[in-house]
Design a protein around this nucleic acid. Structure first.
Length: 106
DNA sequence: AACATGACATAAG
DNA sequence: CCTTATGCCATGT
């Protein structure tokens, strides 16, 4: 039996993000085991296979800002998807106080 | 094995 | 607000 690797944990956490909510990289990293894995989370989502169908569009930076290298063509694409799920976007940013998925409320 | 790169977070200046 | 430095994992060369 093999224990889950860091990436698997990250994928697991990301897959648990409910609809209409968003999670920050640091948040996922913390839930996955260590908050310093924020960078690993970014890389994990970068190489994530489509088969996982992870809601990567619900993952944003701590500022509620969508990463620039996310989708080709522009960030607007992602903000659009979040709005469809009920997340309000303002200046390409999300109101973390209201939409961040987590117990940890600002 | 070593080095460089990457969708971040935090601390310090 | 910005830059610089450090931390972590996996991958590519």
């Amino acid at each position: 039996m093999k224990e889950k690797n860091t990436f698997d944990k990250i994928y697991d956490v990301v897959g648990q993000i409910p609809e209409g909510k968003v999670a920050s990289y640091g948040q996922i990293a913390e839930l996955a085991g260590n908050r310093r894995w924020a960078r690993v989370v970014g890389y994990a989502l970068h190489v994530v296979p489509d088969s996982m169908h992870l809601p990567c569009h619900r993952v944003v930076t701590k500022e509620g800002r969508v990463s620039g290298a996310f989708l080709s063509g522009g960030v607007n694409r992602q903000a659009r998807m979040l709005e469809e799920e009920g997340v309000e976007i303002e200046e390409d940013r999300v109101d973390m106080r209201k939409y961040q998925w987590s117990k940890r409320i600002f």
